[in-house]
Design a protein around this nucleic acid. Structure first.
Lengths: 195, 195
DNA sequence: AAAATATGAATGAAGATTCATTTATTAAAC
DNA sequence: GTTTAATAAATGAATCTTCATTCATATTTT
């Protein structure tokens, strides 16, 4: 039976350790120790060190996608949808600070050292934004000349960079809500002064 | 004498190797080979592996800053300044694809494995944007309610995420100019349809 | 008492760094 | 201007440490 659920225990330990040390500086024995498990036990649940990271990506991003989609499905106004996505994305940073750190740093370089791995879950997450933009265009709320491929990246990138700042610096001038609102506001109405 | 300038040769070799393998998978001997230099020679010019990376950051970002500042100084309209910054940033990606890859990936994780290193050059680069935004506010061209700390990150993040896509994927739907223009346009005027 | 889980010491490969030696460059002496 | 000595630059094989992974053994569960 899986009363102790080692799989989950190891994943959670890995998040903690990887957030602090990064993938290459983290030792398997660090993760084992954090999970209160023997080094060898890890290899009963994962094929190798990479496999821990990949599984972590898939499972944790998967959870986030489910949550965000649920929240958005209830809405019909694409503007509000964007707001929800933004707030949810940045909120995640403080609720799951360590996971966020891992995703920010390791996801970026995973392409580099795991050539074959295509992170479809991550793409699925970003595509939530492009669906919202599409919807907004159909409803005549968003400009028709938006290139959804560019707009989704720009929006996601803005949020993500804001999150990075949030994670990496200790002092915060603005609240998470302020930041998220400001970004959505800029994307909806632009930075130009109405005259 | 420095007719062959090993320092420069090693940096350029490092860019190439790190772009392909990433910092942790790159061996010193790989860099040495690429630079056509003995392994030991590298240690006559750099203290250790980290030192190569840090020096690379400082020197190469430094060059970019000088260039961008030159281009912007000639302008007075903050809108145009933003355009120049955007175009220049994304252009860099194709002109120095390998450098861009290193910056995208390694800069992100450098905080993780070099706790003491504060990348002031990088901050200086991003601050170019916040200066532009400030200027725009003073001139009553940009909204006064913009939080420059958030807006600069959002703008930079949007560009950077776009660049990442450009670097990592091989097929490109839009040109660099299209992408840069679209992003600036969104930031200036928003995504909402004028009705 | 099988079968399934878990352990952690031992193995072996990898690769950053060192340093004794070689080669190239500059200066000095004649 | 040629030979010799001193200094600087470069080499790359050897060293030494650091883990990921394995597996013979032990423990727990059924």
């Amino acid at each position: 039976m899986r009363t102790s659920d080692k799989h989950q225990k190891i994943i959670q330990a890995a998040i903690k350790v990887l957030a602090n040390k990064g993938f290459f500086n983290a030792r398997i024995s660090d993760i084992a120790k954090e999970a209160q498990v023997a080094d060898g036990t890890i290899y009963l649940y994962f094929n190798n060190k990479y496999d821990i990271l990949i599984t972590l990506f898939e499972e944790e991003i998967g959870k986030i996608i489910v949550l965000v989609k649920q929240l958005i499905e209830k809405e019909t106004d694409p503007k509000i949808m964007l707001e929800i996505f933004a707030l949810q994305h940045i909120k995640m940073m403080e609720e799951k600070k360590e996971l966020a750190e891992v995703l920010q740093v390791e996801l970026r370089q995973s392409n580099k050292f795991m050539k074959e791995y295509r992170n479809t879950k991550f793409i699925e997450y970003i595509d939530i934004v492009s669906h919202i933009i599409h919807l907004g265009q159909e409803k005549n709320i968003f400009r028709k000349d938006l290139l959804p491929g560019v707009a989704k990246r720009a929006f996601f990138g803005a949020l993500d960079e804001m999150s990075r700042l949030w994670i990496l610096s200790s002092s915060h001038r603005y609240t998470i809500e302020q930041s998220a609102n400001q970004i959505v506001d800029i994307f909806l109405y632009g930075m130009t002064e109405k005259t």
